[in-house]
Design a binder for these strands. Sequence first.
DNA 1: GGCACGTTTCGGCCGCCGCCGAAGCGTGAA
DNA 2: TTCACGCTTCGGCGGCGGCCGAAACGTGCC
Lengths: 233, 233
Amino acid sequence: MTTVNAMNLAEVGSLVGDVARAQMLTALLDGRALTAGELAWCARITPQTASGHLAKLQAAGLLAMEKQGRHHYFRLASRTVANMLESMQVVCAVDAPRRIRPESRIDKEMRLARSCYDHLAGVLGVSLADALARQGAVDLSADGGMVTDKGRALLAGFGIDVDALDARKRCFCRPCLDWSERRHHIAGSLGKGLADHLFDLGWITRVKDSRVIRVTPTGQRGLEKTFAIDHPA
Amino acid sequence: MTTVNAMNLAEVGSLVGDVARAQMLTALLDGRALTAGELAWCARITPQTASGHLAKLQAAGLLAMEKQGRHHYFRLASRTVANMLESMQVVCAVDAPRRIRPESRIDKEMRLARSCYDHLAGVLGVSLADALARQGAVDLSADGGMVTDKGRALLAGFGIDVDALDARKRCFCRPCLDWSERRHHIAGSLGKGLADHLFDLGWITRVKDSRVIRVTPTGQRGLEKTFAIDHPA
DNA sequence: GGCACGTTTCGGCCGCCGCCGAAGCGTGAA
DNA sequence: TTCACGCTTCGGCGGCGGCCGAAACGTGCC
């Protein structure tokens, strides 16, 4: 009905609807900023083509740009954009139930553990959510999640200051549907706090130029001991 | 990186990225099922063109179809799809901060009150969320929302059986960013329960062939008395 | 059976948009 | 100043995809 909205919707859709642009957006989905050249490489296109795409994405407000010398750094403009892309990926995964899915090595690692803007996803993300739920630390459902009093104590003991994450509200634990596992993992400020803490502890590390995350040997032991998670290498 | 994902993402994007298809999806966003002909009319295209679009959307799993005599009824395939479209609309509204926005009458009414798949949005939706938060019935934040014990009692008194909405979990109150108000309203099972109850009471009614919702005179008085909401006519 | 109607299939036209080569601009290093 | 490098702009080519007219299919009504 409201043609103006449908037009805007179509506009955003068609921006994401190009393979090259979708590849660039996917590459930016871990929240870091990349240069125009890096993004061109990600999308396997020439710099001049990428430049055009990036200009469009920026004009539409999906990307933010920052100049640093002769490099132009692009990142997702907001968490809102990241949420949108995540929700689109969920639909991709859910509706194409059994498409031909070439199980490349990088895909396999992505399924195992990856960053999802500012929190963890994949088998690792879901395992963590399960472990916290099993211990009665969080209460997850499709509509929302909350940290229990027991959970506050437990997380504090682990080194995460729950109160600092969100001083006022009791609900800062958003469930986020995992496109590979098709189950919920923990997003929101707790998700971010959890991921940050695991990075700080050296339990997990990023793989260069990718959203893939690897669990270190220390992390393996830590996850086993703290959360009873047996993460496959 | 993972080319397979980016391709799927682009696929979904380009499906939404066509103006005609976007209009049809927007029309279906209130959760009802419409016939192919009605959808063609919504998108201002001929039936044969619409048929092609609908076939694509169905093949991709965005729409579900049900035959009834010679009519083919289409609806959004899942809540997941509705969530995706909502999150895309939020991005539309947020990024184009001050686009030329022709304030048509229908747009004005949409901003005032509309259905959002299965719950309420617009000024009305946000007012309700505000009122419930002000009374300490719910606890909303960007990451999640929960109903307090006080809220359970209050809603029960109003005629909504909170326990029946979700027997186990305490969090069934999802915040949903309103694209017109740019603030949160209440979604999730509580959002649906609330909307359903207001329809049952006859406080609100749907406007034919649109997502617009009107508050009845009875509703005006009821909202004023129960929630201290002064909804403009 | 005959007709009306809603929907789909087919075929061909047309326009938009992504792509790259070449060239131009701004920045940093020598 | 000169060069190298990253990024952008311009111009032209090519293909994908949306659009409609015509016609076929299936269903319900008379």
